[in-house]
Design a protein around this nucleic acid. Structure first.
Lengths: 172, 172
DNA sequence: AATGAAATCGACCAGCA
DNA sequence: TGCTGGTCGATTTCATT
């Protein structure tokens, strides 16, 4: 390891390349991947299985287009809670379970949760906000509408700087 | 259509079920899906192809575990820009291109961008903030650390309320 | 839009470096 | 441990309804 003490598996360059490929597009044949990496199909298969076992690959999923479902309205809502009963972990869970809520972050500072939700129209957005306020110990909410999403659907491998990457690669 | 005027394809219940399945897990056999939906394998395949062609399914990708890469630190940063040269679309693009930046939202209000980034340590986080400030016409930034992510990796189908769902389903 | 058969591709196993 | 090559089963494709 070159850099910081990181609780990471050690990957070789081939692993990182492979992960970069399939994080971007897994709708390709094993042959394609094998050619790209100068490996046999079996070897690619072997590495994929290992990466799944180690929970590096958490799953293979279809990325759906929100617009196809009329989900064109996105809001970022800051939620403040009353700090009576310690850190209410379950408030976060309740927020996450509301229909239309996509992401819930518990943060430091006076605003406790940042919630990103995606719906079809203003009526549904109002319902979400009402549902949030109805949650016990939710104190106050403040929402902003999103006019444009520039980056979305996090791709870890694509966002790695050279330094971050070198913290992962071993020579083996 | 029952509800609001939505720019959506029309789906039947089978499409919605299918999409719900594969958005959650596409690492299953066609047989599994066919059984689940009471359809033949070929029929499932046919529908999948159609949904890809219509860009409802935007891609099949591997979901990677950020912890495996030591990416344990998440921050939400609000970025204000100077409004000299109109809405600078390119500021959003520049923010999105920074290593470690995952999501960039352009919002209404005095804070113009909300940026979510994920890195390995504080040093890298400081670098991102510095890079943001270095962008032309970026005025001010304010960051909060995320202590817990309750919901992440948006799954649209799972977040649809009955109402949202009924806005999509036709009888055909 | 769905079917069934033929061609293609992926999963798994035994063995090897 | 990481890889090879071959076999079998699954998937993709296409003509047909």
């Amino acid at each position: 390891m070159t850099g910081a003490a990181i609780d990471a598996d050690e990957f070789d360059e081939t692993d990182l390349e492979l992960l970069g490929c399939i994080e971007d597009d897994f709708d390709v044949s094993l042959d394609t991947l094998a050619n790209e990496l100068d490996l046999s199909k079996s070897a690619v298969h072997y590495r994929l299985n290992k990466l799944k076992e180690n929970d590096v690959i958490q799953g293979i999923t279809a990325d759906l287009n929100p617009v196809s479902f009329g989900l064109t309205m996105v809001a970022i809502t800051e939620v403040a809670v009353t700090h009576e009963h310690g850190y209410s972990e379950n408030v976060g869970t309740e927020l996450a379970e509301l229909n239309g809520v996509e992401q819930v972050y518990y943060t430091m500072g006076d605003v406790d949760f940042v919630v990103i939700s995606r719906v079809q129209d203003r009526t549904q957005m109002n319902e979400i906000i009402e549902d949030m306020v109805a949650i016990d110990s939710v104190n106050e909410t403040s929402s902003r509408f999103v006019m444009d999403e520039i980056a979305t659907n996090p791709k870890f491998m694509a966002n790695l700087s050279d330094e971050m990457r070198s913290n992962l690669a071993d020579g083996a």
